[in-house]
Amino acid sequence: MDLIFAWLLIPGAIALAGALVLVVRRRRTGEEAVPVAHGDRLASLPSYQRLVRRQRLWLTVVVLSALVLAGALLFAAARPALTSSQRPEQRSRDIILCLDTSGSMSRADAAIVDVFASMVRDFRGERIGMTIFDASGVQVFPLTDDYSYIEDQLARARDAFDRRSADPAFFEGTREGRGTSLIGDGLASCVQNFPRLDTERRSRSVIFSTDNYLAGTPVFALPEAADLAKAKGVRVFALNPADFGPRTTNEEALELRAAAESTGGQYFPLRSTTAARSIIDQIQASEATATQGSARGLVADRPDVPLGVALVAGAFLALGLWRVRS
């Protein structure tokens, strides 16, 4: 509990003390008291003594409740408030899920979406977008931190991958390029999908799921796309469903790994059970500096207690003034 205008207490207390002094002075000097003799004529009466006791009691009530009232109002005027500083965690990490939907991936895609969905459940604050590509990249949904929307979209993607015929519109626009499985182009379009790529410094990652089986002539070869990503500060985490480990031998997998690692990212065979978790850890460990939002002070006024006390004291004051005879 803090007082916003704590300085107000000092002039307030001085004013209160001054008012008290004035009241006492006025009592002393005000209406001239008359000297009388044989006051025992009145003072010795039991009925008078009873009334005096009652008068004293109510006077005490009046004085005390006036003091409490003034004090409580002064305290309320000093604005008691709960202050707290909040450091809103602005996770300025952007993640684009980049999914190869070419024929060679068709069996693995649903599982990959599952992995994505499990990752999304662990993210909080990050913005996530999704792009699918075959011959050309298509944005499924842009970067957003609306997780329920993301989950809806991933569920839709999963359904679409389960039965391609059920939702052909999902794949609309992915076959516009020359050939299929243009891996480099796909990565490049995913990288380009980050907004304000050149102006805003954020942690950007692409989770890039592909088997790297190229069938056509891409504009960007995979290393070129990786270079672009590196130049733009985007890290690529590759997920390869066609790598059956433990030792990666085939050429495509090696190329993919090299591409991913050249951007500062990592390569995971999809079979690896820890893949989803470690990708998330890696991404979340990145660039903590950029994630801290500026601290914001929160002030919540709490005048209820002093004002409640003032109300009660006011009630007692009114009662006392009514009972005191002057």
Binding site: E31, V34, P35, V36, H38, G39, D40, Y48, L51, R325
Partner: peptide
């Protein structure tokens, strides 16, 4: 009775308004 008075014997105030 005077509104405000005190006893000259001991200086004690008398609350005639109560009476």
């Amino acid at each position: 009775a005077p509104r405000r008075s005190y006893d000259v014997a001991d200086g004690g105030y008398l609350l005639s308004l109560l009476a």
